[in-house]
Simulated scan of single mutants.
Amino acid sequence: MIARLTIEDYLHRLASREPTPGGGAAAGLHLAQAAALLGMVARFTTGQRYREVESRAEGIAEASDRLRERSIQLAERDELVFAAVISAYRLPREDPEQQQERTRSIEQATILAADPQLDVLDIGTQIISLAEQLLEFGNQMVLSDVAASADAARAGLGTAVVTMEINARSLHTTEVVERLGAAVQQAEQAMCRADRISAAVRKALAA
């Protein structure tokens, strides 16, 4: 389980000549870091100085904690479902019946493998929404971490976009292909929002 690995052990596995963990798991951990950064900024936006917005900051901190946990679970789930795709590709194909079964198994496994990437879109979009809120009233001393969070979320979304596009090209189930195409468009919009957050922070710090 990724959550129980040290950072060094995880990176060693990621760099190995093994198919898992891969980009999908990395996307989940990008989101986990993004959520953790938001939680930190929110917690620095409490106390007497921030009394008027403290309840909002505390709510964002709690939401960020939940999203961080979901992101780690997502990274672990992605590793499992992608392993199933690899297993499907390794099925025998010596006769027409085996070829048909292999093709069916690959299609089913690939459809299931798309689910974590759709969750990346959901979680990443929520993180960006929270970052937009903190950009308005968060502690200015840690404002750069709001941008860091947005950039980490963007990295997770970008990975999901590439993965969903690859899956869409290999699938034959029209409904799923269309759903992935719509998700890619949504992810690209969220990535643009993340870019705007980062640009706003840089502008504020340069003022």
Rank of each mutant, 00 (worst) to 15 (best):
L5E: 14
T6S: 13
Y10N: 00
L11C: 14
R17C: 05
G23N: 02
L29F: 07
A32R: 02
A32Y: 01
L37T: 04
G39Q: 08
A42R: 06
T45Y: 08
T46D: 04
R49A: 12
V53A: 08
E54I: 05
A57M: 02
E58F: 05
I60C: 04
L67D: 03
L67E: 02
E76G: 07
E76S: 06
R77L: 14
D78W: 09
E79V: 14
L80E: 15
L80F: 03
A83P: 07
A83Q: 12
A88Q: 05
A88H: 08
Y89H: 14
R90S: 12
E101A: 15
R102S: 12
R104S: 13
I106H: 10
T110D: 01
I111R: 10
I111V: 15
T125K: 08
Q126G: 00
I128S: 01
L130V: 03
L134E: 08
L135I: 07
V142P: 07
V146W: 12
R154P: 06
T159I: 14
V161G: 05
V162W: 08
M164N: 10
N167M: 03
R169W: 04
T173V: 13
V176K: 11
L180Y: 15
G181M: 02
Q185K: 15
D195W: 03
S198R: 11
A200F: 08
A200R: 11
K203A: 14
